[in-house]
Protein backbone atom coordinates (compact mmCIF):
# COMPACT_ATOMS: atom_id res chain seq x y z
CA UNK A 1 0.00 0.00 0.00
CA UNK A 2 2.79 2.38 1.02
CA UNK A 3 4.69 1.49 -2.14
CA UNK A 4 1.66 2.18 -4.27
CA UNK A 5 1.22 5.56 -2.61
CA UNK A 6 4.83 6.48 -3.27
CA UNK A 7 4.51 5.44 -6.91
CA UNK A 8 1.35 7.48 -7.30
CA UNK A 9 3.00 10.49 -5.73
CA UNK A 10 6.01 10.20 -8.05
CA UNK A 11 3.85 9.81 -11.15
CA UNK A 12 1.82 12.82 -10.15
CA UNK A 13 4.91 14.93 -9.65
CA UNK A 14 6.48 13.80 -12.91
CA UNK A 15 3.46 14.95 -14.91
CA UNK A 16 4.53 18.57 -14.58
CA UNK A 17 7.29 19.77 -16.93
CA UNK A 18 8.61 22.23 -14.27
CA UNK A 19 8.93 19.30 -11.86
CA UNK A 20 10.72 17.22 -14.50
CA UNK A 21 13.19 20.05 -15.05
CA UNK A 22 13.58 20.51 -11.30
CA UNK A 23 14.31 16.82 -10.73
CA UNK A 24 16.76 16.50 -13.64
CA UNK A 25 18.67 19.67 -12.74
CA UNK A 26 18.56 18.82 -9.03
CA UNK A 27 19.91 15.31 -9.65
CA UNK A 28 22.73 16.51 -11.90
CA UNK A 29 23.70 19.40 -9.62
CA UNK A 30 23.59 17.24 -6.49
CA UNK A 31 26.04 14.86 -8.18
CA UNK A 32 28.36 17.66 -9.32
CA UNK A 33 28.33 19.60 -6.06
CA UNK A 34 28.87 16.48 -3.94
CA UNK A 35 31.92 15.40 -5.98
CA UNK A 36 33.30 18.96 -6.00
CA UNK A 37 32.53 19.21 -2.30
CA UNK A 38 34.93 16.36 -1.58
CA UNK A 39 37.80 18.47 -2.97
CA UNK A 40 36.46 21.65 -1.34
CA UNK A 41 36.49 19.92 2.07
CA UNK A 42 39.93 18.30 1.60
CA UNK A 43 41.32 21.69 0.54
CA UNK A 44 39.41 23.50 3.32
CA UNK A 45 37.78 25.87 0.83
CA UNK A 46 34.26 26.07 2.29
CA UNK A 47 34.70 29.80 2.95
CA UNK A 48 35.66 30.28 -0.71
CA UNK A 49 32.47 28.64 -1.96
CA UNK A 50 30.36 30.59 0.53
CA UNK A 51 32.03 33.83 -0.50
CA UNK A 52 31.83 33.30 -4.24
CA UNK A 53 28.13 32.47 -3.96
CA UNK A 54 27.50 35.81 -2.26
CA UNK A 55 29.72 37.74 -4.68
CA UNK A 56 27.84 36.30 -7.66
CA UNK A 57 25.02 38.67 -6.75
CA UNK A 58 26.91 41.34 -8.69
CA UNK A 59 26.78 39.09 -11.78
CA UNK A 60 23.05 38.54 -11.27
CA UNK A 61 22.51 42.30 -10.92
CA UNK A 62 24.41 43.00 -14.15
CA UNK A 63 22.11 40.54 -15.97
CA UNK A 64 18.97 42.11 -14.48
CA UNK A 65 20.10 45.65 -15.36
CA UNK A 66 21.07 44.74 -18.92
CA UNK A 67 18.01 42.50 -19.37
CA UNK A 68 20.25 39.50 -20.12
CA UNK A 69 19.87 36.07 -18.55
CA UNK A 70 21.16 36.67 -14.98
CA UNK A 71 22.40 33.07 -14.72
CA UNK A 72 24.70 33.57 -17.71
CA UNK A 73 26.05 36.94 -16.51
CA UNK A 74 26.56 35.50 -13.00
CA UNK A 75 28.52 32.57 -14.50
CA UNK A 76 30.82 34.86 -16.50
CA UNK A 77 31.28 37.26 -13.57
CA UNK A 78 32.07 34.40 -11.20
CA UNK A 79 34.58 32.77 -13.56
CA UNK A 80 36.40 36.13 -13.71
CA UNK A 81 36.25 36.57 -9.95
CA UNK A 82 37.52 33.03 -9.36
CA UNK A 83 40.48 33.75 -11.67
CA UNK A 84 41.23 36.98 -9.80
CA UNK A 85 41.03 35.11 -6.49
CA UNK A 86 43.43 32.42 -7.76
CA UNK A 87 45.81 35.09 -9.03
CA UNK A 88 45.85 36.88 -5.64
CA UNK A 89 46.54 33.56 -3.90
CA UNK A 90 49.41 32.71 -6.22
CA UNK A 91 51.07 36.08 -6.68
CA UNK A 92 50.61 37.94 -3.40
CA UNK A 93 51.22 37.30 0.28
CA UNK A 94 47.65 38.28 1.22
CA UNK A 95 46.08 35.46 3.25
CA UNK A 96 43.20 33.48 1.74
CA UNK A 97 40.87 34.57 4.55
CA UNK A 98 41.49 38.25 3.91
CA UNK A 99 41.30 38.11 0.13
CA UNK A 100 38.10 36.05 0.18
CA UNK A 101 36.59 38.35 2.80
CA UNK A 102 37.44 41.51 0.84
CA UNK A 103 36.65 40.31 -2.69
CA UNK A 104 33.41 38.62 -1.86
CA UNK A 105 31.87 41.24 0.41
CA UNK A 106 32.80 43.76 -2.29
CA UNK A 107 31.04 41.61 -4.89
CA UNK A 108 27.93 41.42 -2.74
CA UNK A 109 28.05 45.17 -2.08
CA UNK A 110 28.36 45.85 -5.82
CA UNK A 111 25.38 43.57 -6.41
CA UNK A 112 23.23 45.44 -3.86
CA UNK A 113 24.31 48.78 -5.35
CA UNK A 114 23.45 47.71 -8.90
CA UNK A 115 20.16 46.22 -7.78
CA UNK A 116 19.22 49.52 -6.14
CA UNK A 117 19.39 51.15 -9.58
CA UNK A 118 16.50 48.97 -10.71
CA UNK A 119 13.21 50.29 -9.38
CA UNK A 120 10.25 48.27 -8.15
CA UNK A 121 9.82 44.66 -7.02
CA UNK A 122 12.50 42.32 -8.38
CA UNK A 123 11.28 38.72 -8.40
CA UNK A 124 14.54 37.54 -9.98
CA UNK A 125 16.54 38.91 -7.06
CA UNK A 126 14.41 36.97 -4.57
CA UNK A 127 14.69 33.85 -6.76
CA UNK A 128 18.50 34.10 -6.79
CA UNK A 129 18.77 34.90 -3.09
CA UNK A 130 16.66 31.99 -1.90
CA UNK A 131 16.60 29.71 -4.94
CA UNK A 132 13.64 28.43 -6.94
CA UNK A 133 14.33 25.12 -8.55
CA UNK A 134 10.80 25.06 -9.96
CA UNK A 135 11.52 28.15 -12.09
CA UNK A 136 14.33 26.55 -14.12
CA UNK A 137 13.76 27.05 -17.85
CA UNK A 138 14.63 24.59 -20.64
CA UNK A 139 17.63 26.72 -21.71
CA UNK A 140 18.92 26.84 -18.13
CA UNK A 141 18.43 23.10 -17.79
CA UNK A 142 20.55 22.48 -20.90
CA UNK A 143 23.25 24.83 -19.57
CA UNK A 144 23.26 23.08 -16.18
CA UNK A 145 23.42 19.58 -17.68
CA UNK A 146 26.12 20.38 -20.27
CA UNK A 147 28.42 22.21 -17.83
CA UNK A 148 27.88 19.57 -15.14
CA UNK A 149 28.72 16.70 -17.49
CA UNK A 150 31.89 18.46 -18.73
CA UNK A 151 33.00 19.20 -15.16
CA UNK A 152 32.23 15.67 -13.96
CA UNK A 153 34.23 14.11 -16.80
CA UNK A 154 37.18 16.32 -15.84
CA UNK A 155 36.83 15.57 -12.12
CA UNK A 156 36.67 11.80 -12.68
CA UNK A 157 39.57 11.74 -15.15
CA UNK A 158 41.81 13.93 -12.99
CA UNK A 159 40.59 12.58 -9.65
CA UNK A 160 44.00 11.50 -8.30
CA UNK A 161 45.76 14.72 -9.35
CA UNK A 162 43.04 16.86 -7.80
CA UNK A 163 43.06 14.94 -4.51
CA UNK A 164 46.83 15.15 -4.08
CA UNK A 165 46.81 18.86 -4.90
CA UNK A 166 43.95 19.43 -2.45
CA UNK A 167 45.71 17.32 0.20
CA UNK A 168 49.09 19.07 0.04
CA UNK A 169 50.04 21.56 -2.66
CA UNK A 170 53.77 21.43 -1.96
CA UNK A 171 53.98 17.65 -1.99
CA UNK A 172 51.98 17.60 -5.24
CA UNK A 173 54.25 20.21 -6.82
CA UNK A 174 57.35 18.32 -5.67
CA UNK A 175 56.04 15.22 -7.43
CA UNK A 176 55.72 17.06 -10.74
CA UNK A 177 51.97 17.85 -10.72
CA UNK A 178 50.88 20.96 -12.64
CA UNK A 179 49.54 22.58 -9.50
CA UNK A 180 48.97 26.14 -10.74
CA UNK A 181 46.90 25.05 -13.77
CA UNK A 182 44.79 22.54 -11.82
CA UNK A 183 44.20 24.99 -8.99
CA UNK A 184 43.00 27.65 -11.41
CA UNK A 185 40.67 25.17 -13.12
CA UNK A 186 39.36 24.08 -9.74
CA UNK A 187 38.73 27.66 -8.55
CA UNK A 188 36.78 28.40 -11.74
CA UNK A 189 34.87 25.10 -11.68
CA UNK A 190 33.91 25.47 -8.03
CA UNK A 191 32.75 29.04 -8.67
CA UNK A 192 30.72 28.13 -11.75
CA UNK A 193 29.18 25.07 -10.06
CA UNK A 194 28.16 27.15 -7.06
CA UNK A 195 26.43 29.63 -9.37
CA UNK A 196 24.60 26.77 -11.11
CA UNK A 197 23.55 25.52 -7.68
CA UNK A 198 22.12 28.95 -6.86
CA UNK A 199 19.14 28.09 -9.07
CA UNK A 200 18.36 25.23 -6.69
CA UNK A 201 19.18 26.63 -3.25
CA UNK A 202 19.84 30.33 -3.73
CA UNK A 203 22.88 32.44 -2.89
CA UNK A 204 22.19 32.16 0.82
CA UNK A 205 21.94 28.37 1.01
CA UNK A 206 23.89 26.94 -1.95
CA UNK A 207 26.99 26.04 0.07
CA UNK A 208 24.84 23.50 1.92
CA UNK A 209 24.92 21.19 -1.13
CA UNK A 210 28.72 21.36 -1.16
CA UNK A 211 29.26 20.94 2.55
CA UNK A 212 26.44 18.85 4.14
CA UNK A 213 26.65 15.76 1.86
CA UNK A 214 30.45 15.68 2.24
CA UNK A 215 30.15 16.07 6.01
CA UNK A 216 27.83 13.03 5.98
CA UNK A 217 30.26 11.15 3.70
CA UNK A 218 33.12 11.94 6.06
CA UNK A 219 31.23 10.42 8.97
CA UNK A 220 30.08 7.19 7.32
CA UNK A 221 33.04 6.37 5.04
CA UNK A 222 36.36 4.75 5.91
CA UNK A 223 38.06 5.17 2.55
CA UNK A 224 38.22 7.62 -0.31
CA UNK A 225 35.93 5.86 -2.79
CA UNK A 226 33.20 5.39 -0.20
CA UNK A 227 33.69 8.99 0.83
CA UNK A 228 32.76 10.12 -2.68
CA UNK A 229 29.93 7.59 -3.10
CA UNK A 230 28.38 8.34 0.32
CA UNK A 231 28.59 12.09 -0.36
CA UNK A 232 26.81 11.67 -3.71
CA UNK A 233 24.08 9.46 -2.21
CA UNK A 234 23.54 11.95 0.62
CA UNK A 235 23.29 14.83 -1.88
CA UNK A 236 20.77 12.96 -4.07
CA UNK A 237 18.62 11.99 -1.07
CA UNK A 238 18.68 15.61 0.10
CA UNK A 239 17.46 16.91 -3.26
CA UNK A 240 14.82 14.24 -4.00
CA UNK A 241 13.41 13.99 -0.50
CA UNK A 242 13.59 17.75 -0.09
CA UNK A 243 11.65 18.30 -3.33
CA UNK A 244 9.02 15.70 -2.40
CA UNK A 245 8.48 17.18 1.05
CA UNK A 246 8.40 20.76 -0.25
CA UNK A 247 5.90 19.80 -2.97
CA UNK A 248 3.46 18.14 -0.60
CA UNK A 249 3.90 20.40 2.39
CA UNK A 250 3.95 23.50 0.17
CA UNK A 251 7.27 24.68 1.63
CA UNK A 252 10.15 26.60 -0.03
CA UNK A 253 12.17 23.97 -1.92
CA UNK A 254 15.69 25.31 -1.15
CA UNK A 255 15.18 25.54 2.60
CA UNK A 256 13.50 22.11 2.72
CA UNK A 257 16.40 20.48 0.83
CA UNK A 258 18.91 21.97 3.29
CA UNK A 259 16.92 20.92 6.37
CA UNK A 260 16.51 17.36 5.02
CA UNK A 261 20.33 17.32 4.74
CA UNK A 262 20.68 18.56 8.30
CA UNK A 263 18.42 15.76 9.57
CA UNK A 264 20.43 13.11 7.64
CA UNK A 265 23.65 14.60 9.02
CA UNK A 266 22.39 14.40 12.61
CA UNK A 267 21.13 10.83 12.08
CA UNK A 268 24.46 9.73 10.60
CA UNK A 269 26.25 11.21 13.63
CA UNK A 270 24.19 9.03 15.94
CA UNK A 271 24.33 5.92 13.75
CA UNK A 272 28.13 5.94 13.41
CA UNK A 273 29.71 4.84 16.65
CA UNK A 274 32.84 6.96 16.60
CA UNK A 275 31.29 10.18 15.31
CA UNK A 276 30.65 11.54 18.81
CA UNK A 277 33.55 11.86 21.25
Amino acid sequence: MAAKNTNTIMLEILQFPFMQRALISGTVLALLLAVLGVFVVIKKMSFYSEGIAHASLAGVAIGVLLSWNPLVTALIFTAGLATLMWFIQKKTTISADSSIGILFTSGMALGILLMSLQRGYQPELISFLFGNILSITNAELILIVVLSVVFLIFLVRQFKQLVIIAFNTELAEASGARVALYEWLFYVMAGVAVVLGIKVLGIVLVTALLVIPVAIGKIVADNLIWFVIASVIAAEVMVWLGLLVSYYADLPSGATIVLVGTVIFILSMFLKDNAIK
Binding site: I42, K44, F167, N168, K218, A221, D222, N223, L224, F227
Partner: peptide
Protein backbone atom coordinates in the same frame (compact mmCIF):
# COMPACT_ATOMS: atom_id res chain seq x y z
CA UNK B 1 46.14 17.92 7.47
CA UNK B 2 42.52 17.21 8.40
CA UNK B 3 42.80 14.03 10.45
CA UNK B 4 39.08 13.28 10.07
CA UNK B 5 39.40 12.72 6.30
CA UNK B 6 38.37 9.20 5.30
CA UNK B 7 41.59 8.44 3.41
CA UNK B 8 42.94 4.98 4.23
Amino acid sequence: FDRTLPIA
